[in-house]
Amino acid sequence: MATVETFEVVAPGLLTSVQDKGRFGYGRFGVAPSGALDSFSFRVANLLVGNPENEACLEITLMGLKLKALTVVAIAVTGADLQACSNDKPLDMWTSWILGKGDTVSFRGLKGGCRSYLAIGGGISLPEVMGSKSTNLSSKFGGLDGRPLQKGDILSSNSPYLHLKTGGSTFPQAWIPPYGKERHLRVILGPQDDQFTEKGKKTFLGSPYQVSPDSDRTGIRLTGPMIERRPEVSESIISEGVISGTIQVPGDGQPIIILVETVTGGYRKIATVITADLPLLGQVKPGDTVTFKQVSLDDAYEALREMEGRIKGFKEGISTLP
């Protein structure tokens, strides 16, 4: 396959990094999965331009990225509406869009959600580190030498011209998740819900929580009514493994939703966001409000099958590459 230079970074924006599905199987070495936070938008972006669904994309946070195309290339922008423009004119999101050599793509600022995903037809040519191209920003490896994009970076892709025929392919409007300022997250109680009082659990399930500014890819910090733990249990527990979506409650009673940059923790978890709602966590930003709703395991699996059904339906409906 021919590797072709496809983009030059004109401005990196607030925080743009290379992410794929994530790095799995290394948790026992303390290595977090990283990966695209809104995995649904990420997978759809890849499918739109004819990539394997787990190919590396750009994860763009809030605003400011500007790229220049170095050749004719197919791209797709999904996820948050950051007012993506091509040559300063609005660009259709959730669509395979063809850029000519010298065309620019820029992200002017937030209208809804938090993170956009930009897939390039032919992917991003980078070596895998421990099985993934995802950037581990805190330990500085993967992606572009473990760092966010910077001005002057050149991105290359494999055989981008093979992907031009996806141009115009569009993801069904009805299947695009809403990105409002209020998020209702479905949770399953546990693993340590037995160590909170009934009042504590009621508070958690019945109160709105505000997203605090010191949230990042490691966790979403929330502020709101204090969640009461049982008086006989201590503030921390013996450290154990954690997954993204689990909601830990430190001594101050203010919940933190764990995301993808950590693998162990020493606080009690009252509940865990269901897999089908994890993509929404990538679109939560400081100032938003979240509420939690308890569901059953059956509800969780039904929601997951429904989400996978949308991906599968789209996959089967679009033309595949030779």
Partner: peptide
Amino acid sequence: EIIPTYRSLLIIYDPL
């Protein structure tokens, strides 16, 4: 994935 810790294992699986 399996993450062994002090006195427990976290086992992550694909529910599908």
